[in-house]
Write a protein that binds this DNA or RNA. Structure first.
Lengths: 208, 208
DNA sequence: CAAAAATTTTAGTTGAATAAAAAATTTTTT
DNA sequence: AAAAAATTTTTTATTCAACTAAAATTTTTG
């Protein structure tokens, strides 16, 4: 029951992450210094480094937390059956964008993506990727359930389809956060166009 | 005809970009300092800053150059007609990966992606995105020509299909560079699975 | 050769990151 | 409960490199 010390550690970490979030939102990532985070959290800057290694480390820790919530929310709110594949995917995308915007500014999300890419391999990057995979799994399971419900042909490969749809959605999400002027509606339209065009390919069968 | 000065400027820039490339390949991005680039190029570090602003700036300049070549190469080598959509896309993806690996290490590509994402909005980021769009256009044109050749149903929306395929390919490309252990074959397989699953959706028509 | 333009030098700021010793706190032992 | 041991945090100090500003110098042009 080594817990008093552990609890305090947890509290300290919570304070750090909380202060970081507030500062990121207030003055942006670049202009937030590790020292300002440390000050706001009532710890020393060395402690921040000890826990999270780098400034990006703090950011990723913060995002990992909030993304775990997103998965639960998605799991709960995404309709289970009786929905078109295209609509399902769009709904999925919309919820992710909603969540992202509710959590942090686009600008900060760009830093998240950059950090995950730039130091792929770090603990926190890998945690982030794992969450992505869980998101993809949500989609896969909905596809399977649509197949059971008869809304979608059963011979389709649900796993690969779900992953492909996730990749596409994710690519568009990154586009969404990459431009301040890009609206959710515009991204939704693009994703819709993507899917419509792709789904149209199979329709005619081989022309040969 | 203000050209002597302009020529020297160009030469200086070439030297900077060349030295940077050599250093990035040799010791990696992080351990290359702007001063070492400047030294190798025979200019002062301030000059490097003046031209490219940041270290990432130099990197993006370098990549923009080499990617222009890629587009030409693709345009020349990608078969014009008489090819399946799936094979076309895979070939496209393969050439991009080949080019990427021939140019820089995965590690450096990660920095490229990070830089483009992190300061979206900078000149060089936007140039990079423009090149991406040109890449997508190559795909679109091949699709149109496949339609003219009768290999693909003419009623399909070539523009949106091409863009969707590019997005998917790009997502998989980023996955490719994100892990040192990820092979081209593995990525090709994933992309093939993506496409097969997506194209299968249309086949049955509506079940409703 | 003088004017104009660009580069380099000089000098300084900033903040991330790290190391090692000191201080504080918690746990364990007596 | 007090002392000792163990662990964590903070202090202190330093390094490193990106980036910037302004003056000095060089180069080009007319």
């Amino acid at each position: 029951m080594s817990t008093l010390r552990a609890r305090q550690k947890q509290e300290r970490q919570d304070r750090i992450v909380g202060s970081a979030k507030a500062l990121f939102k207030k003055v942006g990532f670049d202009r937030t210094t590790i020292e300002s985070i440390a000050d706001a959290a009532g710890v020393s800057s060395v402690t921040v480094h000890n826990y999270y290694g780098t400034k990006s480390g703090v950011l990723l820790a913060l995002v990992n937390e909030s993304d775990s919530l997103l998965i639960e929310k998605l799991e709960a709110s995404l309709p289970t059956a009786d929905i078109e594949l295209l609509e399902l995917t769009l709904m999925f995308a919309r919820q992710i964008m909603d969540h992202a915007i509710a959590t942090l500014e686009k600008n900060i999300w760009r830093q998240v993506v950059a950090a995950v890419t730039s130091d792929a391999g770090s603990q926190l990057s890998m945690a982030y990727r794992k969450l992505d995979q869980q998101l993809a799994d949500v989609l896969v399971r909905r596809i399977e359930s649509a197949q059971r419900a008869g809304t979608l042909q059963p011979q389709i490969d649900a796993l690969h389809l779900g992953r492909a749809l996730f990749q596409l959605q994710n690519a568009r999400f990154i586009q969404f956060i990459s431009f301040d002027g890009m609206t959710q509606d515009e991204i939704e339209l693009r994703l819709r166009n993507d899917l419509t065009a792709l789904f149209a390919v199979g329709i005619g069968g081989s022309t040969q």
